[in-house]
Amino acid sequence: MNSNFEYYKVFYYVAKYENLTKASSVLKTSQPAVTRTIHNLENELGCRLFTRSKSGMKLTPEGRTFYSYVSAGCAQFFKGENDLSNLISLENGTIYISATETALHCFLFRAMGEFNSIYPNVHFKILNNSTMDSVNAVKEGKVDLAFVSTDLQVNKPLRMKKLREYHEVLIGGSRYIELKGRKISLEELSTYPWISLTSEALTRKFLNNYFADHGLQFLPDMELATTDLILPAVRHNLGIGFVPEEFAEEEKKAENVFEIEVEEKLPTRNIILIYDTEYPQSIASKEFQKFLSSQKN
């Protein structure tokens, strides 16, 4: 038997409404097309499903038996379609994101909170990854969007968009209090113990270049895997280090750490959105991107 779901769907609506005209209207097709489908289905099944009269289409005993199965199947299919529609909508959608720590703390947490105040039923699934792992997650279709904190080049079909600038500040703990309240050259600071990310991190390469531009070599005494570990290491007087401004706000207010003013200005950095132009974005993901575009730095 070669019947497909479209045949069953037509049969379901004709049986439900007992009327060819109404069924064709719901199915958005012509009445002759509905009639042909019913004839084809009856021929394939080898029995009559309806009796036709001026009052409409009535199920035969065979038709009623067949309808008990088809209606149950259609109910499941329609429920599945409805649930899927909700999943990709603003009523119950999910947005899959990969983001670096800096992007999360300096931009994304606030943006997600504000978006959820408008669309409270949209859910976020977040992977906390490095910049390159986040880019690869987009390439492989594992996430809808990536948010990173390092300028980089991406190839089509990937596209990047700068969302906002952020600044890094140099901080120190009580052991280095003599550095507080005056501008200090990078050369003088290079003699102090430094804390930074490992050499593989793009942020570390950014700092290597910053030091090199001023004729210095950056040789941190302590290397850490993630940015959020730098702050407690500084607080415990293990050295000085750069962190995004937002990371240090609370600790500075509590006077656990202080900002060190550097004569040589550290370049501004950017929070960047990366997405695949060929990847089918859900309604929720598209709306979130529109929301981000409307936000001011």
Rank of each mutant, 00 (worst) to 15 (best):
M160N: 15
N19C: 02
F78T: 08
F66V: 11
P120C: 05
N4Y: 10
T226S: 07
H105F: 05
I126Y: 01
S174P: 12
Q289A: 08
F211D: 00
F5K: 13
N208D: 13
I240A: 05
N256W: 08
A201M: 09
K9N: 10
I260W: 03
A23P: 01
R175W: 14
L45N: 13
S199E: 04
F288H: 01
Y166C: 14
H214I: 09
A284W: 02
N136V: 07
K252A: 09
V122R: 05
P280I: 01
K180F: 12
C47L: 11
Y8H: 13
L266S: 02
N43S: 09
N40L: 09
I88R: 15
V148R: 13
Q217P: 01
W194F: 14
D276C: 03
S190D: 15
L179G: 00
G80I: 06
P193I: 00
G141C: 06
D228H: 15
K16G: 01
L224C: 14
V154W: 01
A201R: 12
L87P: 04
K16W: 05
G56P: 00
I195P: 15
K205I: 14
L273W: 04
L27A: 07
Q31V: 10
S199K: 08
L87E: 14
E264D: 04
I260Q: 02
S134H: 02
L292H: 12
E264V: 14
L179S: 01
S3Y: 13
S294R: 10
E259A: 07
L202K: 09
E188W: 05
G73R: 12
F78Q: 13
N155W: 03
K142G: 06
E6K: 09
N237W: 10
L84M: 15
K22M: 11
E250R: 07
F11T: 06
S68P: 03
S25Q: 07
M160D: 07
L163T: 12
G113A: 06
H105A: 08
H236C: 15
T100H: 05
G172K: 02
K183L: 00
S185D: 00
L266C: 12
E287G: 04
E263H: 03
N92G: 14
K253L: 15
I118P: 05
E223C: 09
K16S: 05
S117Y: 11
A33N: 00
P267Q: 06
S117L: 13
E178G: 11
L59H: 11
H214W: 02
F107C: 06
S98G: 11
N43M: 08
N92Q: 14
